[in-house]
Design a protein around this nucleic acid. Sequence first.
DNA 1: CGGGGCTTTGAGGCAACTCAATTCAGGTGG
DNA 2: CCACCTGAATTGAGTTGCCTCAAAGCCCCG
Lengths: 240, 240
Amino acid sequence: MDVAHSRVLEVGIPVACRSCQARHGVVCGALSNSQLRELGRHSLRRTVGAGCEIIAQGSESSSYSNIMRGVVKLCKVMPDGRQQIVGLQFAPDFVGRPFVRESTLSAEAATDAEICVFPCNLLDRMISEAPELQRSLHDQALKELDAAREWMLTLGRRTAGEKVASLLYLIATHAEPQTATSTDFDLPLSRAEIADFLGMTIETVSRQMTRLRKSGVIRIENFRHIIVPDMDELERMISA
Amino acid sequence: MDVAHSRVLEVGIPVACRSCQARHGVVCGALSNSQLRELGRHSLRRTVGAGCEIIAQGSESSSYSNIMRGVVKLCKVMPDGRQQIVGLQFAPDFVGRPFVRESTLSAEAATDAEICVFPCNLLDRMISEAPELQRSLHDQALKELDAAREWMLTLGRRTAGEKVASLLYLIATHAEPQTATSTDFDLPLSRAEIADFLGMTIETVSRQMTRLRKSGVIRIENFRHIIVPDMDELERMISA
DNA sequence: CGGGGCTTTGAGGCAACTCAATTCAGGTGG
DNA sequence: CCACCTGAATTGAGTTGCCTCAAAGCCCCG
């Protein structure tokens, strides 16, 4: 498809969608122009600060979202306060649990983020009308499942050092700016959040980070900014 | 739908399907009679012994399966031999990764099992032709994702004792015979497999089992048979 | 009865946790 | 501009829960 032709196709869609990060993402990329218009009519762009809760665990949610910018963490907490991050989502991912209203987890902005919110009912209806959309969401669900299972291996069988290396590698390969070498990036998570993702304590995370720093695998600037001189070296620390 | 009418509908389907455990499962329950006939023509019922590998990690698989009887475990192993079970599937679940041929995990019969095997190509084609089937598989994928995330919480944040209780509870609530109280069952897993599921060692599993036994929460007969006098008591050991 | 696999039990060690103190960066007000 | 405060991160010391290694018990099966 050439550029001029693609321009023409863009005419019929909502203005706000034309330059949207999620325009060709899981949901919107699978819609016809008329469906996109309908969804656009009922959707709301929202800017949320880091830490803002988008969906609360145990609540009835009536809306889904697309991530336009930023990182969202999916969390589960136990009654006694223990907490585990069970997924990280980056733009332009879809956030929500089709077909089920009550949420078994919370979704929270890990960084400042922009999201596009729309009603569950509308999307659920579109899903049953548009096989293309069903397929696309099915595909994201399967990818999330693959990622969850990969992470189960990390949680169950890797050492603290390997866990931290795994997370840094995950973030490096999903970081947004797509720098040439994807060799330096800002951590979207605090040490406490990293601990919650890896199933360990803040202190152990910190110790393992300084171990990686002292062994020259990474450099750390200002706590949040990580530089990886050699990605292969980092990958080797994961031992798989 | 009354019984007589339902009988009539059953006439057009393959003989082998009529009394099949998976007949109304994720895949076959979503097919029309003619699709069921076509799938039946290309499918193969197989009896496999405990320990038999159905799909190998890293291999190109060209077939999917339905579980008709038994339990299948999904496994990931690291190059150095460390191993993690990332999912358990019971009859009449579907086993396979739609849309992707190379498997990132292995599927292995945990108990003696009967499975119904059919070609990927055929089902993939049916998926794109039958929205009902796509929806059904999408639904199973989302349920597996929910289960995987629940298990991530167990792996990352629960103690050894809570982990064992979680597994016993999981199996009790998924056990096949559906005994009146679902209060006693055979473990489909050896101690080594339980350890691989929970991310711990055989010895720790054993110690936690005897701790549960001595505190009266469970009784153990012949290593594999578990009796739970009071399910609420077991649930309380999970502490969530 | 004797061997082999699986499970349990015991003793000791180590990796990760807990508790506590210190450092660091950024913001605020004098 | 500096003193102070606050929250996050690091570092240290001591403890503990789970792992490792080793031995013994149990059950099936020939």
